[in-house]
Design a binder for these strands. Structure first.
Lengths: 114, 114
DNA sequence: TCCTCACACCTTGACATTCTAGGTGAGCAG
DNA sequence: CTGCTCACCTAGAATGTCAAGGTGTGAGGA
């Protein structure tokens, strides 16, 4: 994942991609390409997930049983894999979201101490 | 770095350690051990930096010219390296803090879209 | 005296995640 | 039939972190 930083791309942050994918799929099934553009758009063009990160991540989530996919046809009439959350994935999403909140708050505290 | 999660330790998040160290040193010179406890305390015991992460990180920051150290003696009368920010490090801190804010906001947007 | 503990520093090896940089094939527009 | 976008994929390298080890020294107690 990269973050747009004054028109330069800077790599940043490990461990949040799973969370972002799970959250995106919570809004309904989507194929890889859709997930990419969805994350980019819902972050106001700040977050740019690379394909080389996305697909390994999807396979990782599949393996862990957090998502599954069905074959389907995209809006552009292409073959595509529609991923969706499993119940296990929903739980994981909740857990990861909580963890993220906790972490973000903790870092914020360190950045501006009382 | 790990985050305390209901009395279990879960590793989390790559790329923020430099920021936390720089921010800690902004409050004045400190040696490694102090930096560890300072981060733990200012995060309300949530963030626990391991030695195996801290020292490589310090050497990395040294190499990049963001910090320097002087030999000194600790409060406990031990030999210690007192690290402090360089002007370059101060700039870097500002840049990384901005980047973090940007990222945290972006992720927050993805987590709860309008 | 000797022992143990905490302090302060360090390194090695493994691991996971991500990026770069490739590649495939199919549909669509010119 | 060419070129473009879509949609999928992988190999290789880089990176940062952790777990687990290690050294040496000072302080305090037995």
């Amino acid at each position: 994942m990269s973050i747009r930083d004054d028109d330069a791309r800077v790599e940043l942050l490990q461990g949040t991609l799973d969370l972002l994918i799970l959250r995106t799929l919570q809004q309904g099934p989507a194929h890889g390409h859709e997930i990419m553009t969805s994350i980019r758009q819902s972050s106001d063009e700040v977050l740019q997930v690379e394909q080389g990160s996305l697909y390994p991540a999807l396979h990782r989530l599949l393996k862990k049983g957090w998502i599954v996919f069905d074959h389907g046809t995209s809006e552009n009439n292409r073959r595509a894999k529609y991923y969706r959350l499993t119940p296990k994935g929903r739980k994981q999403l909740a857990a990861e979201a909580t963890k993220w909140e906790k972490l973000a708050r903790a870092i914020a505290r360190v950045l501006r101490p009382a």
